[in-house]
């Protein structure tokens, strides 16, 4: 029944991460020599079949990171490696070859579909571009719509404005699936949906991941949603990675004060135990005038003079890392362990 295209075969084997990003950088020039440090030295890897969640507040660079991965804009620096192959450059795989394997779903489900096309044609567009005949591409589109639990006969001929928000977002997911990708980048893919519809789409994403062996990068500012769907989570602040680790560990024992502040800012859900004190005050600063040293220091309750001296690197143990001097033995921060602890 499933006539979705076969994904590109595994090349590197199970131990080779599906995607490695090394030191990605993107600055947007403003007038007068100022620059927005949208993504500033971000590195991570995503294993095959894994879901990496990306969280952080508005403007921290999540969407820019996704666009860099999808080659929707050139990066200033850094490397992308897809299943062992560098992407772009003289020895790498082409952008087209990469997009055959990695697809993206955007937040704004309405404006990412062509309003003048029946949605089945929007879904068939990818397979057409990848060389299928018109009728074969429509067949793939119908299979993709079935995969997201939409009736192709009923929904396929409709136009975007005739669909609900949840249905449109399913169509967007179907469009990504119609290429037969190995990985899907989901940028705030459920954020605009009502809670009851959001639950339906999250269930669908979990089911598709299992049925189609998909790898996800799941971007959201909603911590509860990220916790639900991710295996590992990466916390961004002002273009940089503050913390990365297995989702259960990061939520149960966050290592970066920013992660702790984010977690403490969630509404309580229990009217008998309302939030009484604020974890942090102020707004996230703007990514143009960056503070010296650690970017979180101006809002951090634990900041000391050393924190403004240099930007801390990710450190910690094993697979749970945080960019905080408190994690670094002998860093000079009064809460850091002594050097002998590291020996």
């Amino acid at each position: 029944m499933n006539s979705l295209p076969e994904p590109v075969a595994d090349r590197g084997g199970p131990a080779q991460p599906l995607l490695i990003a090394r030191d990605l950088r993107k600055y947007f020039p403003l007038g007068g020599g100022a620059r927005v440090h949208a993504v500033d030295g971000v590195s991570f890897s995503i294993a095959k079949g894994e879901t990496l969640g990306i969280v952080g507040e508005s403007g921290c660079g999540k969407s820019t990171l996704a666009r860099l991965l999808m080659q929707l804009m050139p990066r200033d620096a850094g490397e992308l490696i897809l299943d062992g192959d560098p992407v772009g450059g003289p020895h790498g795989i082409s952008v087209a070859a990469m997009r055959r394997q990695v697809q993206m779903v955007f937040q704004d489900s309405a404006s990412s579909l062509n309003p003048r096309l029946p949605v089945q044609d929007s879904v068939a567009f990818g397979p057409r571009v990848h060389g299928r005949s018109r009728s074969a591409a429509l067949e793939v589109a119908r299979a993709a719509l079935r995969q997201v639990h939409l009736d192709p006969a009923l929904i396929g001929p409709r136009y975007p404005h005739e669909l609900s928000g949840g249905q449109k977002q399913r169509v967007n997911i179907a469009r990504a699936l119609a290429i037969g990708p190995r990985m899907v980048v989901l940028d705030e893919a459920v954020s605009a949906l009502d809670k009851s519809v959001q639950a339906q789409v999250l269930n669908l994403l979990v089911q598709l991941r299992r049925d189609l062996d998909l790898t996800y990068m799941f971007i959201s500012h909603d911590l509860a949603v990220v916790r639900h769907i991710s295996h590992r989570v990466l916390v961004m602040y002002l273009g940089q990675v503050m913390e990365v680790g297995p989702v259960a560990q990061v939520f149960a024992a966050p290592r970066h004060p920013y992660t702790r502040a984010l977690l403490a800012s969630r509404p309580s859900m229990d009217p008998a135990r309302r939030t009484e004190t604020l974890a942090i005050s102020g707004d996230p600063p703007n990514p143009v005038d960056l503070p010296p040293g650690c970017r979180f220091a101006p809002r951090c309750p634990h900041a000391e003079a050393v924190c403004t001296a240099a930007n801390p690197a990710l450190a910690g143990g094993a697979d749970h890392l945080a960019a905080c001097l408190i994690q670094v033995p002998g860093s000079g921060h009064s809460q850091a362990p002594g050097l002998e602890a590291a020996a």
Binding site: L262, P267, P284
Partner: peptide
């Protein structure tokens, strides 16, 4: 943002 929302609440 989450950290600002709780301040406003």
């Amino acid at each position: 943002d989450a950290t600002v929302q709780i301040q406003v609440l």
